[in-house]
Design a protein around this nucleic acid. Structure first.
Lengths: 234, 234
DNA sequence: TTCGACATAATTGTTGACAATCCTGGCAAC
DNA sequence: GTTGCCAGGATTGTCAACAATTATGTCGAA
């Protein structure tokens, strides 16, 4: 029965390492274009190189890092047009899911959402970015999970992961966190009231801020010399 | 480029192995629930175990195989409800993509589609299942690729891959192949004529047959003993 | 100074052996 | 006849050393 073995099963360690790296990317601890050296990570995370290797392969599949043969991995920098495209698909998918959630929402779903939202609010108020990130992910998972279409939920989560690199701008910003918190509350309200139009609208506008903040930040800070942006010359 | 490269880059070999296994699954050479033993595959495909391992991890992420820790990999058997859910999302995404294709389609797109469709028709007529499969994939890639949203195309392809295991029923069936060929022709026609409604409708109905055939087949052939179906005893 | 060849260092990719784990089948006890 | 247990074998997971590749820095020549 106990699925979670006491001594971390191998594939679990890989997933654990991948999750740690993902968090470090989202929280801005690892910046775009930063190199991810296998041995270095292996020592820091106290695992063998080969585990880090598999974790990096996982993150490459997800789209969070980029691996160049014989040259190693770097955290991927999404260009603005790709971000816009991804967000447009996210909007479509999340709308689709929101339209399929049975309304008014069941008590179990509402209770779960309120509990998670509570944790998220606490994390935001105490400026605990990591806890806020985790609670935020869990909130969306339970919210969209209520649509009854697991493959759809998986897709939504996958797309969210893809732009996690983009969230390093908003994940630490108190204003954005507070805004997200309030929007979550509004969503729960709409779910309880059975107001589908409001729910869908909330989901849609919930996506905007992080996208816009990222695009603005990326064009200001990570522009490559040689691109359209005029960069100061040394 | 020569596929059978003598000195293939490592990550290329992994992708190559994954692609081979995927084809073998789609063509029904590897059946659902069949075990995939690393050493065995390594010897058969003339690569090291380590490469097979990574390829299996890839296919696991795609959803074509299932890996249980310390027990190995098997080709995944999708249950009918999951297949229905996936197809419903496919329908939504392909509709979304079809709605974004600029109409009437550009000459380059049409030329490319006609060329691929020609190859597909030849393969179907000569009952070359493998060539038909490849041409079919390429057709949909170029078709939806015309929507101008690469992440969306990637998602569509990923979902198609997920149900590739389900295609082993239709991939070898002459009737289904002929039907697909004719529907492809109709799509090209709609693209050329700039008839968006017809295009969207064609995309939608194009999904039906393989889904229905798979669900019927799975319930007839792969029912687990202990389920409602009565299975013959040896 | 600038350019290019060459040696050197840093990093990834590969390999085979070893350890851990899980399934199979036989054998004994009830 | 069924159940439980203990080998034995098959398979996956782990590891450290080695090979291959790419980046870096130095030196000499134009």
């Amino acid at each position: 029965m106990s699925m979670t073995a006491l001594k971390a099963q191998t594939t679990e360690r890989v997933r654990s390492v991948a999750a740690m790296l993902e968090e470090e990317i989202v929280l801005g601890w690892l910046l775009p274009r930063e190199r991810l050296v296998e041995e270095e990570l292996a020592e820091r995370l106290a695992v063998k190189r080969h585990v880090v290797r598999e974790a990096l392969a996982d993150l490459e599949r997800v789209g969070l890092v980029e691996r160049i043969p014989n040259r190693g991995a770097v955290v991927k920098l999404l260009d603005p047009v790709e971000v816009r495209q991804i967000y447009s698909v996210r909007e479509a998918l999340e709308t689709l899911a929101a339209e399929q959630i049975p309304l008014p929402a069941s008590a179990t779903v509402l209770d779960a959402l309120r509990e998670v939202q509570q944790r998220h609010a606490v994390a935001v108020d105490s400026a605990d970015a990591r806890a806020a990130f985790r609670a935020n992910m869990q909130f969306h998972e339970t919210l969209f999970g209520a649509c009854g279409n697991p493959p759809l939920v998986e897709l939504i989560q996958g797309l969210a992961q893809k732009v996690h690199g983009a969230r390093s701008i908003t994940a630490a910003s108190p204003e954005h966190l507070r805004l997200a918190r309030d929007e979550h509350a509004a969503m729960v309200e709409a779910l309880a009231a059975g107001d589908r139009d409001r729910l869908v609208a909330l989901c849609r506008q919930h996506l905007g801020p992080s996208r816009d903040a990222y695009i603005a930040a990326i064009e200001a800070r990570f522009a490559r010399p040689g691109a359209v942006m005029t960069e100061r010359q040394p």
